[in-house]
């Protein structure tokens, strides 16, 4: 009986999703295949936590699928997915009282090259600035796309990027003597 259980669940799930319109499924399938990995990696870079990023993207993709009639019409649906995933991850971090605290960098590690200096500096940035940096320099999104994705003004994106780059430079020059 236990061997039949997965099949029963599978059939129940098939019934559950049988009434979804085919056109909507095909549209979302294409979006999922094209953008899942990029958004997930961007979130992993932002959060410094791959597992959390995968959970967040799965959650955001689920919500996108539920609202695909609306989300699918956005200019940049992956931006919506990124923002939903980021918000979900941050609220989850708050719930479990776990912050993506920057890892302490020891000078011995730096000397040995164990810790990448840029990684350590990026970890020192606030999440808002880090997300702007990741979207701009990893996903190559324009400032306007970033503004839409993060639901902020384009001017805010510019200022966040400027502050982030200045902070990175300061951290590399002053803290680590480069």
């Amino acid at each position: 009986m236990s061997a039949e259980r997965p099949n029963e669940d599978f059939e129940a799930d098939e019934i559950l999703i049988s009434d979804i319109p085919r056109a909507a499924v095909a549209d979302f399938d294409l979006f999922y295949r094209q953008h899942h990995a990029g958004v997930c990696r961007a979130l992993a870079l932002t959060l410094n936590d791959v597992e959390l990023a995968q959970d967040a993207v799965a959650e955001a993709m689920t919500r996108a699928y539920q609202r695909w009639n609306a989300v699918g019409k956005y200019q940049n649906p992956s931006g919506w997915v990124y923002r939903v995933g980021l918000n979900w991850a941050r609220s989850r971090l708050r719930r479990i009282l776990r912050k993506p605290a920057p890892q302490p960098v020891h000078t011995d590690d730096i000397a040995l090259g164990v810790v990448n200096l840029l990684d350590a500096a990026l970890a020192q940035l606030p999440v808002g600035q880090r997300s702007a940096v990741v979207l701009r320099y990893y996903l190559d999104w324009s400032e306007r796309q970033i503004a839409e994705a993060l639901n902020i003004a384009p001017g805010t994106v510019k200022s966040r990027l400027n502050r982030a780059l200045n902070r990175l430079e300061d951290l590399l020059e002053e803290s680590y003597g480069i």
Binding site: R33, A37, R41, Q54
Partner: peptide, 15 residues
Amino acid sequence: IRLDPPALRDIRVRA
């Protein structure tokens, strides 16, 4: 980063 994305069908069922 090694990803282990959920199957698309799982997303549908979950939704």
